[in-house]
Each structure stands twice: as structure tokens, then as C-alpha cells.
Design a protein around this nucleic acid. Structure first.
Lengths: 150, 150
DNA sequence: CCCAATTCGTACCAATCCGGTACGCAATAG
DNA sequence: CTATTGCGTACCGGATTGGTACGAATTGGG
């Protein structure tokens, strides 16, 4: 299974690209060319990111986008949430009331804890971490999950 | 966004139900009634779980399913993987070679680390944890993601 | 030895969701 | 005033997914 949607994946790429040159103001076409993604899709992504306050947009001729905050203050979780909505493991986590099984489903309370762990993993990484090419190898988190690659 | 597919969610519910009575052998119809899920879907899930070695099936009359191992030895990650396939954040993580952007995409190496952190969160929880109603607040599983920030 | 119950495997259908596109409006610079 | 660029909405085709159906294989009981 793939956790992130393609769009969210692209969103991170676009945001990372902007983080590379925080001072420059780039329009959608430029970003699209640099990331080799379809222009229309990039425009859509940037709009969503702007709406969430991750990037700021200036309209009109010679307009464009730039990061709204320093790259170190923007987490991956935020970027993903801007595009795909709130992060939740199960239907229950996101739309609590729509689950008719709530009363007798014994697993529900446990999801919250797992949820937090996943959210934290995404929140712990910032755009700044993404642009530093090699410095990011957390030894504590890397090893134990080896068995999962089955 | 919702990370787990509905089917995977159901799968965990079914597996949890079996964990409640590890000795009894239950057929698909019984499980479906107990979990209030569609019979056909439950049958499909049990088949997938059996294929992955999570539950063992005995065929023929008076056949049925039961856990293949003690509940404490089966992680949520395993159950999910049995139904939805391998867990990966991005397309890149799962189908590495199909990503044409590999060479110049600067974010790729970083996903692996996040990936592992998420996998760990799912692997730290066993079916046994799921059936113990209140005792589940694993400080060990929730915290470590913080270390990810290098 | 035969029949009934039950899982197994495969194939199939329907619907929702998602990636991607198009078009018109609003705003800003020159 | 005009050209450029972002904004918003609406739309479409396709892939994925949730769900169903049916026949084959297997086992226990009469």
C-alpha cells in the first residue's frame, strides 16, 4: 500500500523546491519546469499550499509564490495536510461520528495512539531537513524496522 | 487523508476478533456476524490473512479459521501488509524503479527514514495490545518518533 | 461410499476517488 | 488600458477499490 497520494508527494517536491531559494519569487510555470511536473498540477498544488498558509502568493503580472515561513518551520505533515486534508489512519479517526460501529468496536481507542505516532513521524521532519542532502540519517529510527520489508 | 484503506481497517477488526478467542475455530459466517461486516468481504479478508500466514485455515466441513500464532506475536503492520501489500509512503518507496525522476529528485532519500518511522509505529502494536481495553499507552512506541529530528 | 458443509481460487462488476485539464474571473504591473 | 499571472470552479477520463458470484477442492459425518 502507498500511504501518500501522488498529489501529496508532488506537493512536498514543490515545497522543497521553493525552500531551495526562499527569497526568489517563482511563478507556477517556473516551478513546473524545474520539478518536471505538469504545469496545471503544480498550479493546483500551489493554490492548495497558499490556502493553507504554507506559501504566500502575490497576484498580478510578475507575481508568484514563495514560502510563507522559514523552511525549518514547515513540517512535512503540514504540507501533506494542506493537500490531502487531515491525517488519520482510519475512517474513524477522521470522521468520528460517521462510524456506526463505534459502540462495540474494540479497536477504536487504540488507533488514536498509533495515529499520534505516525503524525509525529511526519511532523518531526521539516522542509529544511529535506534540502540538506545527506545529514539526515537518524540512527535511532532506522534499524528496528528492517523486518518490515517483507 | 486516510492512511488505511477500509479493507485494511476491517482486516484489523477481524484479526482482533479472532484474537479474543484464540482457541476456538470460527468460520467466516460467524466472524461476519460478530463483527457486523458483510460476509463476502470477511471471507475475502480471511483468505488474504491466511495467505500471509497470519491465520490458519482448515477446510472441509466444520472447518474455520484461527490465529496462526499467539496474538502477542502478530503486529498491526503485518495484518495491514497482508491485505494492502507492503507499506510505503510514496510511489518511490514501493516501486523504486518506476520513478523516472529518481536521478534529480532531492527528496527521495529522506522518505526512507520517515517510512521506517511510520512502519515502526505500526509494528510496535500487536493484536494482543488491541484486545486489552485500557492498558495500551506505549510510551516506547509514541515517543521515539521525536528522535527523528536528527 | 456418498453427501453436505466449508474454504479456496478466480473472475467479475459497480462505484467511488483521484489525477489531470479547461475556462472564465480578479488583480496587479507597466 | 492591456498583458500577465494567480484564483476559483467545474469537469472529465481512468485507475483503484470495495463488494459479489460461482465453480473447484477438501474434509467430516451418515
Amino acid at each position: 500500500m502507498i500511504i501518500l497520494s501522488k498529489l501529496a508527494d508532488y506537493g512536498v517536491i514543490v515545497a522543497t523546491h521553493l525552500a531551495l531559494a526562499p527569497d526568489r519569487q517563482e511563478n507556477a510555470a517556473t516551478v513546473a519546469a524545474a520539478t518536471r511536473l505538469p504545469l496545471a498540477t503544480v498550479a493546483k498544488l500551489l493554490k492548495a499550499l497558499a490556502h493553507a498558509g504554507v506559501v504566500s502568493a502575490t497576484r498580478g503580472a510578475a507575481g508568484g509564490y514563495r514560502l510563507a515561513r522559514p523552511a525549518a518551520a514547515i513540517s512535512i505533515a503540514e504540507v501533506v495536510a494542506a493537500i490531502d486534508g487531515d491525517i488519520g489512519l482510519t475512517q474513524c479517526s477522521v470522521h468520528v461520528d460517521e462510524c456506526a460501529h463505534t459502540t462495540y468496536c474494540p479497536t477504536r481507542p487504540h488507533w488514536a495512539a498509533i495515529n499520534r505516532a505516525v503524525g509525529q513521524a511526519l511532523q518531526a521532519v521539516t522542509l529544511d531537513d529535506m534540502i540538506s542532502p545527506y545529514a539526515f540519517l537518524p540512527p535511532a529510527a532506522v534499524q528496528p524496522a528492517a523486518e518490515l520489508s517483507r
